[in-house]
Design a protein around this nucleic acid. Sequence first.
DNA 1: TGCTTATACTCTCCAAAAGAAAGTAGGCAC
DNA 2: GTGCCTACTTTCTTTTGGAGAGTATAAGCA
Lengths: 130, 130
Amino acid sequence: MPQSEKRPYDPDAPVDPRVETLVNELIGRVADKWTLLVLEELEEHGTCRFTRLAQLVPGISQKMLTQTLRAMERDGLVHRTVHPVIPPKVEYRLTELGQSLGEAFCGVWHWAEAHLREVEAARTAFDTRG
Amino acid sequence: MPQSEKRPYDPDAPVDPRVETLVNELIGRVADKWTLLVLEELEEHGTCRFTRLAQLVPGISQKMLTQTLRAMERDGLVHRTVHPVIPPKVEYRLTELGQSLGEAFCGVWHWAEAHLREVEAARTAFDTRG
DNA sequence: TGCTTATACTCTCCAAAAGAAAGTAGGCAC
DNA sequence: GTGCCTACTTTCTTTTGGAGAGTATAAGCA
C-alpha cells in the first residue's frame, strides 16, 4: 500500500495545492448526507440488500439510494454483488476502504451523540433571540 | 456539562430511537459540503471576515456562504461578531463546539489525504469496466 | 456636488438536484 | 390469466443551488 509513502501526516507540512483541491473534492463527495447514513447502516449491519437499506436509512428515496450506492461503488467504498436469480438479489457490503472511512467518521458520530443537547440549546437560543 | 451524563459512549449500548433520529438529523446537517469546508478554513485560519472566507472556500457563492454561516451560527458552531462601522465588518470564529466538531472531522481529512489515490484508482477501474 | 470604493449581504432568475410516485422485467404461485 | 417479488428506472414536481446584479452607508477624492 504505497499511498502514504513517507508522509505519516504532519499537520504543519506544506500541502501540495493540487492535493488540497483533490481532498476538498473528495470531502465534498463523501460528506454527503446520504453517503454518510448509508455508510453508517452498512457498518452497523454488514451486508445488506437494496430493500433492507431503503428501510434502514430513514427517508431515503429509491432514486437517491441507487445513486448513492453507485457513487460509493465507483469510489471503491462498497462492493456490489449481483445474484442472477429471479426475483433479483443484490447485496451491498463495505469494502476495506469503506470500512476505513466509516472508522474515520466514528469521531463525528460520537460528537453528534455527545453534543446533541448543546446544538439543540444553541438552536433554541438563536431562534429566541432572532 | 451534563449532556453525557453516565454514558461515556458504549458502542453496543441500546440507543434510544429518538436519540438515533436526532443524531441522524444532526449528521445530515453537519455532513454538508459547505459546512465542512467552512469549518476547515475557520479551523485553519482562525477568525475570518466574510469576504476572506469567500476567497478561502473554493467555489462557494455568497448566498451559500451566508446560508452556511447562519446555519452554523444557529447550531452554535460559529460565533458572529458585528462591528457597527462603515463599510461593515463582520467577523466569524469557531465556538468551542465548532472546534470540537472540527477535531471530530480530523479523521475524515486524514482519511481523504491518505486514501485519495485509492479512490481515484477505484473510479478509473469502475469507469473502465462500465 | 457627485463619483468611486469598500463590505456584507440580499434579491432575482435560471439550471440542477432531490423527492414522489408510477412503471419495468421476468420467472413463479395461483 | 392475475398478482407477487425485487431492484431498479422513468417521469413529473418541488426544492435547492449558482450567477450576477442590486442595496445601504459613509469616507475619500475631484
